[in-house]
């Protein structure tokens, strides 16, 4: 008998929640709040009116930095993948910046840019763009030579090969880069906000002061739901727009 996938997922979630409830009941809410306590705290957090403005403020600033990172990272990554000169010039910088955590550069950015929109979007941009670049570089380098040779044998110009072979081949990878970038953008935004105790990061800071962990866990649950929701949406968009690639990865 084949058990439906949804039922297996629900069973997994149920078992995890049950384990969490048992652990929380034993350790107390100051160490591990139970799912029931977290749910109650979540309701309080939603009711007190501070959550939605914080989410909105975080969301739009993050999106500005993220979209800028995509706008720069995708063409730069493709250029690195297709041109040895660009690769030689940019790769050392990309390798250096990709390992720098957002937390390490936030203090410097605060002093240089203050604490406004420019600061938050810049942190998100810097923390995201190199992951987009790395993904797109590998994708551009991996375009099948067979496809390019076929185009050449039909006398396709450089532009035609780029427009009709390389770009379509890269399309699914743009959406993968978007998913990877989004996760890093969200993490960078939270880090930036925690430093200046603003928006959602400020709520996390304040919740950390309470002896009970329930409000903190409640906010973390919201963050996880946001991340899962956004990446699922991008995955769905990828499956819809590049079904040939989705069929290869869904096996």
């Amino acid at each position: 008998m084949r058990v439906p996938r949804l039922a297996v997922n629900a069973l997994g979630v149920g078992l995890a929640l049950a384990g969490w409830q048992i652990a929380g009941s034993g350790l107390g809410d100051a160490l591990v709040a139970t799912p029931v306590q977290v749910a109650a705290a979540l309701v309080d957090t939603i009711r007190d009116g501070s959550l939605w403005p914080a989410l909105w403020s975080m969301g739009w600033q993050m999106m500005v930095g993220y979209l800028a990172a995509m706008a720069v990272g995708v063409p730069l990554g493709v250029a690195m993948g297709r041109s040895d000169v660009v690769l030689s010039v940019v790769k050392p910088w990309a390798q250096m910046f990709i390992v720098v955590s957002a937390a390490a550069i936030v203090p410097l950015f605060i002093i240089l840019m203050g604490r406004g929109v420019l600061f938050c979007t810049s942190i998100v941009f810097v923390a995201t763009v190199w992951y987009v670049v790395a993904t797109m570089t590998e994708a551009a380098r991996g375009v099948s030579p067979k496809l390019l040779n076929v185009a050449r044998s039909f006398a396709a110009s450089d532009f035609q090969r780029f427009r009709y072979v390389i770009l379509p081949a890269l399309h699914p990878f743009v959406l993968i880069a978007a998913r990877i970038g989004l996760v890093h953008a969200l993490r960078a935004m939270i880090t930036a906000e925690m430093f200046i105790s603003a928006g959602f990061g400020g709520l996390l800071n304040n919740a950390g002061l309470d002896l009970s962990t329930a409000p903190l866990f409640g906010l973390i649950v919201i963050l996880m739901a946001l991340s899962v929701g956004a990446t699922s949406l991008l995955r769905w968009a990828a499956h819809r727009s590049a079904p040939w690639y989705a069929s290869r990865t869904n096996a």
Partner: peptide, 13 residues
């Protein structure tokens, strides 16, 4: 009022 998580950052700014 500009809350600052890292204490030395207050004087730095």
């Amino acid at each position: 009022v500009r809350p600052t998580a890292k204490i030395p950052q207050i004087a730095q700014e």
